[in-house]
Amino acid sequence: MVQFLVDVLIRAVDLALIAIGLSSVYSLIRFPNVALVQYATTGALLALALQMAGLPLLAAGIVACLMVGALAVLLNLMVFERLLRAGSAIAMIGSLALSMVFSAIFLVTAGPRAQRFELDIAPPLRFLGARVTEHQLIAAAISAVAIAGFALILFRTDLGRCMRATATNSVLARATGIDTRKVTGTVVFLSGVMAALGGIGIAVKGEMSVHLGLDMLLPVFAAAILGGLGNALGAAVGALVIAMAETLVTNVNFGPIFGQSLLFIPAAYATAASFLLLVIVLLARPYGLFVSEVKRV
C-alpha cells in the first residue's frame, strides 16, 4: 500500500509541475500552450549542457530555469501575442507548430540519443516497506517546494492578487490600475520556470531524450484538463488522479476473481486509462473537475 502511494507520488510529481505551468498560463492567455512541454525538454537539455560545461548541478538547474523563463516570455511576445489576435484555436495550433520547430532544433543540436546527468548512484532506501531512492526524494521535495512557493505567490502576495484579478476579468483589472501586460509577462515567465524545473526533475531521476516533452504531452494535458485549465492547483490534483489511474491499471491483480493466480490488464493500457478518464470527465464536467464556469460553444 505504501509502495502504491509512493509510485503514485513519483509519477504525479513528474506531471504536476508542467501541468501547473500549463494551467496557470491558460488562466491569463486563454489557450493551451502545447510548446510548454518542449520548454521542459529545453530546461533539461540546458541544465545538462551547463553541467557538462562545468557548473555544479544546482547552479546549472537555476540558470537553465531562468533561461527557459526568459525564452517563454520572449516567445510569448514575438509569437503568441500575434497568434492570439486570430483566436485561441489558432494560437494552440501555432504552439503545436512551434513545438515541432523545437523538435527539429533538438534533433540537430542534441541528437536522438538518451542522455543523463552525472550523479552518484545511491542504493534504494526502504521506507515503511516501500522502495525509493534519494534522487526521487530530492526531486519530489523540490517539486513540493516549487508548488508551495507558487501557491504562496498566488494567494499571499500582491502579485498573486493581480494575477487572479487579471484572470477573472482582465478589463476590470486594467480599469483598476493593474498593469495586466506586466502580470501576464510574469505568469508566462513563471510557467516557463515551472516547466523547466519539471523537465529537470524528470531528467535527474534517470534518463532523458529529446522526445521527453512530446512523450509527456497527453498525460500533462490530461492532468491539467482534469484539474480544470486555468486552475493551477487543480492541475496538481489532476496529476495525482492521472498517476493513480495509471498505477491502478498496472497493479491491480484481477486473477482471484477469475480463479487464476495472476491476471492484469495489459500494461499497454495504462496510458489509455488516463486518456479515457480524461474523456469521461469531460463528458460529465466539460471544464474539468475544479472549474465551475459553464459556457457553451
Binding site: 486518456f275 480524461l278 474523456v279 469531460l282
Partner: peptide
C-alpha cells in the same frame, strides 16, 4: 466542449483507439 478542450479530447480519443 469548448474548441480547445475538444481538440485535446479528440487527440486523446485517437490515441486510445491507436493503443
Amino acid at each position: 466542449l469548448g474548441a480547445d478542450y475538444w481538440g485535446i479530447a479528440t487527440l486523446a480519443m485517437a490515441e486510445v483507439l491507436r493503443i
